[in-house]
């Protein structure tokens, strides 16, 4: 798949999902179990993404490096109620500084 195909296909599917919500009857997703699974879906995917972006290396191997320190800094900033941009920039600075010092 070319990058453009990925970009356009994902965009089309994202829009179709949004539009479907405007068109289908609500009864389709009623029921406590179904709605609980759907609520937990982004939690699961984002957790997986945090894990892979923090530890993942080439070919799926796992590494501990500056990224783990950066995510630690992000968690501290989130506990301090910093906003999104501060969290992201803070984490990047921590990783950048550690690497400049020759670690990770």
């Amino acid at each position: 798949m070319s990058t453009w195909t990925v970009v356009l296909l994902a965009s089309g599917l994202a829009y179709a999902t949004k539009l479907a919500g405007h068109l289908v009857p609500e009864s389709w997703v009623e029921g406590p179990r179904r709605s609980r699974v759907l609520t937990l879906l982004p939690v699961a995917l984002l957790s997986g993404l945090v894990a892979i972006q923090t530890f993942g290396g080439s070919g799926g191997s796992l590494h501990v490096d500056a990224r783990l320190a950066a995510v630690g800094a992000a968690v501290v900033l989130l506990l301090l109620r910093a906003n999104f941009l501060v969290v992201v920039i803070g984490a990047a600075v921590v990783a950048g500084v550690l690497r400049a010092m020759g670690w990770g």
Binding site: V50, A70, V71, A74, V87, A92
Partner: peptide, 26 residues
């Protein structure tokens, strides 16, 4: 990598996940 942008991605996902972690199930 030099600017820590790969780490910024992990931090971005952490920040997106954070407000969703209120319940025990989450």
């Amino acid at each position: 990598q030099r600017w820590g942008l790969d780490a910024a991605a992990a931090a971005a996902f952490t920040a997106l996940l954070w407000p969703r972690l209120r319940s025990r199930d989450a």
